[in-house]
Amino acid sequence: MLRDITIGQYYPADSVIHKLDPRTKLFATLLFVISLFTFRNPVGLGLAAVFMASFIWLSKVPFGYMVKGLRAIVVILIITALFNLFLTPGEPLVKFWIFSISQEGFISAGKMAMRLIFLIIGTSVVTLTTTPNALTDGLEKALRPLNAIKIPVHEIAMMMSIALRFIPILVEETDKIMKAQIARGADFESGNLIKKAKNMVPLLVPLFISAFRRANDLALAMEARCYHGGSGRTKMKPLRYQKRDGIAYMIVIVYFGVMIAVGIWL
C-alpha cells in the first residue's frame, strides 16, 4: 500500500514543464493553491480545471499515474466530504434519524472534495516533473533572503533532499522488518488501540536503529566527499531563468488575475 504513494516521486519525461525552472513551478503552485480557495462558483472551478488539465497535458505524465496519488488521501477526502455534507446548516434535502443533508451541505462537500483533489493533483504535477534535488535547489534559492535572518537555508534544503532520497529506502525497510516480525508471530492487526501501539515496538525500534545507522554512514560518506556546508560550493545544474520561465510567469499571473476577478464579480 505504501508503495502506491506517488506524491513526491519523480516521473522522467521530456516536456516543457520538466524543463521549467523549479522556482517558476513553485511560484505557479503557490498561486494555483491560493486560487483554489478563491472560487465560489462553477465558472471558477471550470477555469481551474482547464488550467490544471493543460499543464498535465503539457507535462506528458500519464493522467492515470497522477490519479494514483489520490489513493493515499481517499480517507481524508471522505471524512472532509462527510463533515461538510452533514454539518453544513441549511434547508434539509434528505433526513433520517439525527442526520440531515442540506443542499448547501451537498454543494459545500462537492466543493471541498474538488479543492482537495485539485490541490493534490496540482502539487503532484510539480513533484512529478521536478527531481527532488532541483526542487530543493529551487527552494534554497527562492528562500535565500532568509539567510539574512540567520535561517540556515542551505542546510534545510540539503536535509530535505536527503529525506526524499531515503523515504523509499525506509519504506522498503519497514516492509521487510514487518515481514520478519510477522514470521516470528508478531501481530500488527488485532487488539485495541493501546495494544496495537504496543505491538508496534518490534517494528519501530529496529526501524529507528536502522535510520540512525544509515544517517551515520551517510554523514561519513558526505564528509569523505569533502562536504563542508554550503559555503564555497558550486552547482552542477545552476538555476537560470529561461525565456519559457518568463512566459510561464505571465500565464500564471494572468490566470490568477482572472480567477480573482471571477471570484469577485461572478
Partner: peptide
C-alpha cells in the same frame, strides 16, 4: 545505499 546522496 548509505553513500548515495542524490536521487538521480
Amino acid at each position: 545505499d548509505n553513500q548515495i546522496i542524490a536521487s538521480v
